[in-house]
Nucleic acid binder design. Structure first.
Lengths: 182, 182, 182, 182
DNA sequence: TATGAATGAGTCTTCATTCAT
DNA sequence: AATGAATGAAGACTCATTCAT
């Protein structure tokens, strides 16, 4: 993929996450290119949004692949997934905002990934690592919510970027309460 | 507040959370009124969005008041807050999606509440209930993210509505991992 | 005609002459009645405008009748016509603004009056009282223009109401230049 | 000023003078452009009307400058002013119809011109050329009224365009009555 | 008779998109 | 590749009108 295209996508994701009604004009300006260029890269607004979704899904898939969710301790695998997702958290935040993913018959690509993440949590439960009273579906959803919240918090400067992975992982895996045995 | 108005707001929040670019026509249809009536209630799209924000903030404030965050065990207070927030989770999900809140110079009303929630987590840390390695700012953000994720999951039918409070509370307070001592 | 109706018409004429795009709401307010009352008097906006035209035409016809344009010196007859028109100058100003009169196939009623006024000027020419190098059509048009200008000038307080008739008459009949013999 | 813009303004003035309630659609059609293009030229209806006023005022100012109202015989200066105004009579007719000019606190630009015209008539009176029993204010108003009436008469085909200047001048300066001494 | 709610039918305005420069 | 003009299509908004109170 051309660097240009990637750069435009990144800017578009950031803007559309904050302001879903942004016009093509605003998107072009935010990306620092002209309207014409924007239209040459993406044939239209719908195409841009679809490209954004596809890119986010592809990147998350790569993160998931690299995290090797089937290997080793499930908790460690979750940690790896969060760490790998961090660089593309902006795209993920856009995806989570775009709830239409779930609406229009559920996006095939995303669905596939969703199942793999749920499988990871299920494996963790079966291996006695994760609690049984929280469903894999909810743990998956919570993972998304925390990654999104983390991305926003970083973007708004409320937490440091370097802490993103640790904070999300710790909260998801360990929870907020102090452990007695520590 | 008139029931009509409340009803329209609720429908608008639900729709806009799922589809932030929904047109006034779609919103009106979702609320079961005509476009013109929608415009009589809210002078324009911006006004509607602002009303939605204000309503969400006011409702969350009520939830916060009722949760008495200064009383008793901090973890229990968080649980109460989550429970009280559940009925207005739809509005909160909208608020979290509307990241513009933070853009336009930070909404005064929201800021006030944010500080109170952070104070609750800080108190919990000082009383030895919450971990010290996760900042109150992040715990607060995570609370929002989980409430939002829970609301979406319920709305999309992926988790049962009655489980909402427990799931959010358990995950936030206890985390995903199994406790040895339990 | 009811006094109410006349009063509403007068207010509507004054407002619509100054602001042709005034809404029914504004007209009602200007007349000091409610929208409902306005709608009871006139079945709709179009009906109101038509009533305004009809009223203006009827009143001008009455003025023309009372001026007895066929009798005596033509210049005196013109003076009488101007004097009689003064009380309804507001309606006439509205009519002149409403050039649509001439557009839509020419209003029958108005056309009839127009011909009578032109006939008066023609008679004056034939009797050697009026100049022959200005057509009756133009003299008629000029009469309208001056009555309208006079009405506006009075309404805006640039000339005194009591001077209206004399000023219009003098200018139309005598012109601006000083007469040697005077 | 671009020719496009001028062309659109001219068409708008002609249409709005005849039908003050014309929609943007009708105006666009009359100018031979699309609604969207009309909106690119003028940011809205109000802006268009204001541009029309400004243009009319600017053109009248040019006519006034070129007529050199301070030079020579006052009557001749009036004649020159009328002659110079003829090409922009359409815009002037629009201005006179738009009585709102006087409403909104009196338009500054117009006011300036008004004063200059009144000064011309006053000079004529002081130099013994114009009658003293008609105020400069009224003579000025009458000039506007006759120019407007002339423009309408020409537009509606009731008098020939080439006669416009002569007819307005003769009537304003000489009046309708026959002069004995001529 | 006045007021306020409700809405269908427009009117105004913006936007995505194309094209020419 | 960028810019500005042009416009069809869509969305936002207003208004005349009706009805209930």
């Amino acid at each position: 993929m051309s660097l240009d295209r990637e750069h435009v996508l990144r800017a578009a994701a950031a803007l559309l996450t904050r302001k879903a009604t942004a016009s093509m004009d605003e998107i072009a300006k935010a990306a620092g290119v002209s309207r014409a260029t924007l239209h040459r890269h993406f044939s239209g607004r719908d195409a841009l949004v679809r490209a954004l979704e596809d890119h986010g899904i592809a990147e998350f898939e790569r993160a998931l692949d690299e995290a090797r969710p089937e290997e080793g301790d499930a908790a460690e695998a979750v940690r790896r997934l969060i760490a790998r997702s961090e660089p593309v958290a902006g795209f993920l935040a856009f995806l989570f905002t775009e709830n239409q993913l779930y609406e229009a018959g559920i996006n095939e690509g995303w669905n596939r990934l969703d199942i793999r993440v749920q499988a990871l949590f299920r494996r963790g439960q079966e291996e006695g690592v994760f609690r049984l009273d929280l469903t894999p579906a909810w743990l998956t959803e919570a993972l998304y919510g925390l990654i999104g919240a983390g991305a926003w918090a970083v973007q708004d400067g409320r937490v440091a970027a370097k802490d993103h992975t640790r904070m999300v992982s710790e909260l998801l895996l360990g929870g907020a309460q102090r452990r007695m045995e520590r």
